[in-house]
């Protein structure tokens, strides 16, 4: 994802020429500067805290997680997980077998998550981009709207989701009051947090919470579109709509490449929203993978199977990210050439 960009262009536009001319000679060779030893050691010393923390909190647990996925790990072995018996690929075959209950549940949860992610990311991107484009030009109230639109992003997830949970209550919520009592659209007030409707409830909350991030990033991206492009477009007789289609949207390509990927990963892994909206056990129609793994690990205390599902999830995300970056980067190179 992002590292591709940050590492290939590690300098701000102004610094690029200087860095380029220096780069080939000094990439490996010594620098003609005083204090050579300190200089070569210093960057590593500066990186050490960040590295140590990442290793301790991310890398080690992930290695442990992968090991655990090959073990028969239940509550009896939690005290000393290293002593738990090996199970080979047993956990994986169990959760991947669509004929068995565990496998079937995982497959359904996975498909639900895919559908949910595509819908949520699409809507978030659409709303964010439209809002950013409409707020590009100055008009009265623009600053106010911009601040307002960022409120869902700034609110703590649980505070926002709890409010939505209240609105979706069957008997005392706002949604049923409007749909049933005021508009009379439904025969009896539906349940939103149980059954099939829960998918839509989750989607609404997720989009409400997620679109401001897209808005923020696109807005930042729009500031880098050179003004000359618009002037040239206007000279050629392009109106506002045409300028948006021919200048604004294509200029957003590099931003979108990163944005869509980040939105995808966050939404696919989202745990907080369904967990706060539904509690520990989500209804089937809104059983996202993270909640599913959490629930099946802690309900059955079968942590080996939970770890196996997590590893599968990680493999899937790596695969999608790899393919996505390959396709979009190739597309971009072709477009640039």
């Amino acid at each position: 994802m992002t590292p591709v960009k940050t590492t290939t262009t590690p300098h701000a536009p102004t610094a690029v020429p200087a860095a380029r001319t220096r780069a080939p000679g000094t990439a490996r060779g010594p620098r003609r500067r005083p204090g050579l030893l300190r200089r070569t050691a210093l960057p590593y010393v500066l990186l050490l805290p960040a590295l140590a923390l990442e290793v301790l909190v991310h890398l080690l647990p992930i290695v442990m997680g992968v090991l655990m996925s090959f073990k028969e790990l239940t509550q009896f072995h939690l005290r000393d997980w290293g002593a738990a018996p090996w199970r080979g690929l047993g956990n994986f075959t169990a959760v991947l077998d669509p004929g068995a209950p565990a496998g079937e549940a995982l497959l359904r949860s996975f498909l639900t998550t895919c559908l949910f992610t595509v819908a949520s990311v699409g809507l978030c991107w659409l709303l964010g981009t439209a809002a950013a484009v409409f707020l590009q030009e100055a008009f009265r109230g623009r600053a106010l709207l911009r601040a307002l639109f960022l409120v869902p992003y700034a609110l703590p997830v649980y505070a926002a989701v709890i409010t939505w949970a209240f609105m979706f209550q069957r008997d005392d919520g706002l949604v049923n009051h409007v749909l049933h009592d005021q508009l009379g659209l439904t025969g009896s007030p539906p349940f939103w947090l149980l059954g099939d409707n829960s998918f839509w409830a989750l989607l609404v909350v997720s989009v409400w919470k997620g679109w401001p991030f897209a808005f923020l990033v696109v807005m930042a991206g729009l500031q880098n579109v050179p003004r000359e492009l618009y002037e040239a477009g206007a000279l050629d007789g392009a109106g506002t709509w045409r300028q948006i289609r021919a200048i604004t949207l294509p200029s957003l390509r590099p931003v979108n490449q990163v944005l869509v990927l980040v939105l995808f990963l966050w939404t696919f892994n989202d745990f907080n929203t369904p967990f706060v909206l539904f509690g520990k056990a989500a209804p089937e129609a809104a059983d996202l993978v993270s909640v599913h793994i959490h629930q099946s690990s802690f309900a059955t205390w079968n942590f080996g199977a939970g770890a196996a599902m997590s590893v599968l999830l990680l493999c899937f995300l790596l695969l999608v990210t790899g393919v996505y970056l390959f396709l979009t980067s190739r597309g971009r190179k072709a477009a640039d050439a």
């Binding site: 994802m1 590292p3 991310h58 997680g65 696919f268 770890a307 997590s310 999830l313 995300l317």
Partner: peptide, 27 residues
């Protein structure tokens, strides 16, 4: 600074963003 492993560092630090929290919760 220019140093060996710079790219590796940025790539690996950023890729932790894609790990599902649930994967390392229990470990």
């Amino acid at each position: 600074y220019r140093f060996r492993g710079k790219r590796l560092f940025t790539v690996s630090v950023l890729s932790t963003q894609m790990f599902p929290g649930i994967l390392f919760l229990l470990p």
